[in-house]
Design a protein around this nucleic acid. Sequence first.
DNA 1: TGACTGTATAACTGCACAGGAATACAGTAG
DNA 2: CTACTGTATTCCTGTGCAGTTATACAGTCA
Lengths: 110, 110
Amino acid sequence: MTRIAKPLAPAALEMVAGRFKVLAEPARLHLLNVLMAGERTVGDLVETTGLNQANVSKHLALLAEAGFVSRRKEGLHAWYVIADSSVFKLCDLMCSAIARKLGKDLQAVK
Amino acid sequence: MTRIAKPLAPAALEMVAGRFKVLAEPARLHLLNVLMAGERTVGDLVETTGLNQANVSKHLALLAEAGFVSRRKEGLHAWYVIADSSVFKLCDLMCSAIARKLGKDLQAVK
DNA sequence: TGACTGTATAACTGCACAGGAATACAGTAG
DNA sequence: CTACTGTATTCCTGTGCAGTTATACAGTCA
């Protein structure tokens, strides 16, 4: 369980925390989850997620700023697509961690 | 970039988001970073991080509730230790993602 | 040109939460 | 018992941000 400690500078901690924060919203995870199937327009995402248009735009802006998705304009439409596949691994890891945690909690109860 | 879409239930999204949120604070990442070197008492962590005692206790409580660390009481002292090594992978992944992002931003500027 | 569609951007409100101060609690020592 | 130490918890305050509404902007079509 012990690792070589590589102390991180405050600025680095802020950066990492900031990016985790982008993933720390159900709405944004929902958008990413839909985008995992491929490129979508804002309108598609509004319809699929049930979120209103302004909200979707803002969430996508945050995801894009963090580099998780990228934007492509085509006429009136804006197409968004996953730009960093590490989000898949991040979410998978987190889901596995949750499964382990729930398993422990279950053992503690029964 | 396209994957098989496995739609997640709202409750699942909340869970995943909630755990990302625990990692979305510089102070907690700092604590985890120190704990990567091994088990520490609250006092150790207060001294190492410069955070005040109440803050450290509260952050550790959140980390423990999420299952990232676990607590062991010994006399007056409370020893905390990393309980889920996936935090290492999560942070490594995030750091790599940041490096890629910064590399892209750099290319876009120069 | 003007009307319309898709998207982005204010401006506002409410809430969750980090940080700090004070206090409560548990364990030890005398 | 009392005094003290290490840790947890409560209360308070300020701030960041999600959600909503309204509006602005950009591109298309007549």
